Structures are given as C-alpha cells and as structure tokens.
Amino acid sequence: MHDERDGHSASDGGHAPKPGADDPLGMHGVVPPTITAFDEDESVDYEATAAHARYVAEGGAHGVFPLGTNGEFPLLTPEEREGVVEAVVEEIDGDVPVIAGVGAPSTRQTVAHAEHAESVGADGVVVVTPYYFPLDHDGAVNHYQRVADAVDIPVYVYHIPSKTGNSLSLETVDALADIDNLAGLKDSSKDVPWLGQAIDANPELTFLAGSDSLLFPGLEVGCTGMVSAVANVFPELVVDLYEAYDEGDEERARELQSEVYDVRDAIKRGPYMAGVKTALSIRDTGFDPGPLRSPLRKMDDEDRAALEADLEALGLL
C-alpha cells in the first residue's frame, strides 16, 4: 500500500486511511446515500427529504450524498432531481459536505445536472457511469472529462456495474485519475481485488466503499470512508464503526461490522430497497419517508413486522 494513503502515519494520529491529495473536500468517514421521500401519491416530499439529510448529519455522518441509489434517482424527473439537491443543500447549509448525484445516461444531461448542483451550492458531484448503452474506455474518459470541465467543484466517479451494466477497467480508472478536478471514486462493485488494485495504483484519489458488506474490509484496503445504506437508518452505528477503526480499535470495528451485517440482512428482507424506508418509518425519526416510487414498492405488513422484530432483537429500537 502506498504511503500516501497510510493513515497510520497521519500526523493527527488517525488510523483510518487518509483521503487522496486530489480531493479538496477530503471525503472520509460515513456518507449516507440519503433517501428521496415521497407523499402517498408518489410526489416528492422535499421537506421530508431534507429532514432525512438533517437526521443523518445529526447522527454523526461526515457527509451527505443525495440522489444515490437509495435516493431512487433514475425514477425522478430532471426537475425533481434539481429540487432534491436544492432542498438538501439548503437544509445542511455547510454543516457537512453535500456531494450530489448527477449521473444520467447522456453526457449532456449529466453536465446539466452537475452545473445545476454547483450553482445551488453542492460541494461536489457524484457521477454514476452512464447506463443502458455499453460504455467503452474512450467513452468513459470523454464523459468524465466533459463533466469535470463543466464545473469547478470536485467530481467523484460512482462505479456500480451490477446496476449500470458498465464496469470500469483498472486502465480506465488510471486514465480518469489524470482528469483535473476528478477527486475520487465510490465503488459498489463488491470486487475487492479490483478495488484494492485501483486504490494501490491511484493513491491521489479518494475511494469510498459502497456496500455495507465492506465497511471494515474497505477501510483495510484503503478506502477513506463508506457510503452506507444502513447509516441512512442507524447513522450512529456506522459512525461508531468508523471512529473505532480510526482510533485503532480494530477489534471493536470488527464487532460493529458484524452488527452491520445483521442490520443489513434485516433490511434486505422483502422487495428491493424497501427496507431502509420501512426501518425509518419504524424508528421514531420525526419525519415520514413515505413509499418508494413505482415500480419499486413497500414491504407488506408481514415483512414489516418481521423487520421490526429483528431490529428489536438487535436492540436498535
């Protein structure tokens, strides 16, 4: 592992890996991919969406990431996406960095989202690889170059090949690292050897682990932080894991990763992605996350009761 990323040599005594030198925001710690709340008719509830961002920030999160997968971004109109970014930026008001999801299948639309996010005060943008159509090396490099050229805030790549159908080769990541203003990469591939090699080859970038199954392992291979769906509901649990690791208590961090596995299993019950909003509605959060937008759907009463029983058994309610 390159010395540039070795947190153990940090002057502040922190044990967690340090962000890359090319990352002006120094993204690290827990960055929940916050939800988009809906009313019962599936219209966006901007007030509750902002309230959820406030909820995770008050739970200790080190950053907020609206319009990731948990934000149901592919199901929103461009105008709704802009409204979500505006609501979250206004609510957080500089307390922690807001890195807004701006990715779209077309470069033109992605650039438009990125320019809007910058104009309303987002601190950075997260750009999922274009999806639906196949993406080759040159297409990927040109896409990210155009986005990075369009804004002055840092750009983070979002790599989630299971959902986009497009994976990035290690050679492509190396080329992306040469783009001015490209600061890091959020990896949800769950391909640990790929991630380890990408980190090793590009110590100037910040890497964020994108799966709750790889919070502790991600820190071990050099990720500076984690984009955690579990942290959308229990931010303090994931923050405790990061802080234990950063303080050098790896045994405690491992124990908390084990607890995260249990929570992850519980919220993965039922329809795809229904668990986070259901768990938020079970927990007394002070806001209503509402339903998911169709064709995604809520848990039925049986799954909801089982989730509540699981969370009770874990001592989290």
Rank of each mutant, 00 (worst) to 15 (best):
M1A: 13
G7W: 01
H8E: 04
S9Q: 10
S11W: 12
A16V: 02
K18Y: 01
P24S: 09
L25R: 06
G29L: 12
D39I: 00
D39K: 12
V44K: 01
V44S: 07
Y46C: 10
A50Y: 00
A51K: 12
H52E: 07
Y55P: 05
G68C: 10
E72I: 00
P74S: 07
T77I: 13
P78I: 00
P78V: 02
E79A: 15
R81M: 14
E82F: 04
E82S: 14
G83E: 11
E91Y: 01
E91R: 13
G94N: 11
P97S: 08
P97T: 04
I99S: 09
G101S: 07
V102Y: 03
S106F: 11
Q109L: 15
H116W: 15
H116L: 10
H116Y: 15
A117H: 04
A117S: 10
G121F: 12
A122N: 09
G124P: 09
G124F: 10
V126G: 14
V127S: 09
T129N: 13
Y132M: 13
A140C: 12
V141M: 06
V141E: 08
N142S: 15
V147K: 03
V147R: 03
A150H: 08
D152G: 12
V155M: 09
Y158L: 10
H159N: 15
P161L: 04
L168H: 05
L170T: 11
D174A: 14
A177L: 07
D178A: 14
D178V: 05
N181L: 13
L182E: 07
L182F: 06
A183M: 04
G184H: 02
D187P: 07
D191K: 01
V192M: 15
P193M: 12
P193C: 13
W194R: 02
Q197A: 14
N202V: 09
E204Q: 14
L205E: 01
T206Q: 06
L208T: 03
G210W: 03
G210V: 01
S211W: 04
S211K: 02
L215G: 05
P217W: 02
P217G: 00
G222L: 04
G225N: 06
A229H: 00
V230I: 08
A231V: 08
F234R: 06
F234E: 05
F234M: 06
L237W: 03
V238I: 07
L241E: 09
A244H: 00
A244Y: 03
D249T: 04
R252H: 07
R254P: 02
V263A: 11
A266V: 13
K268N: 15
K268P: 01
P271I: 10
M273G: 03
A274Q: 04
A274E: 04
A274S: 15
G286T: 04
D288F: 07
D288A: 11
P291Q: 12
R293Y: 02
P295M: 08
M299E: 07
A306M: 05
E308G: 05
A309D: 15
A309V: 05
D310E: 15
D310R: 08
G315N: 04
G315L: 10
L316V: 06
L317N: 02
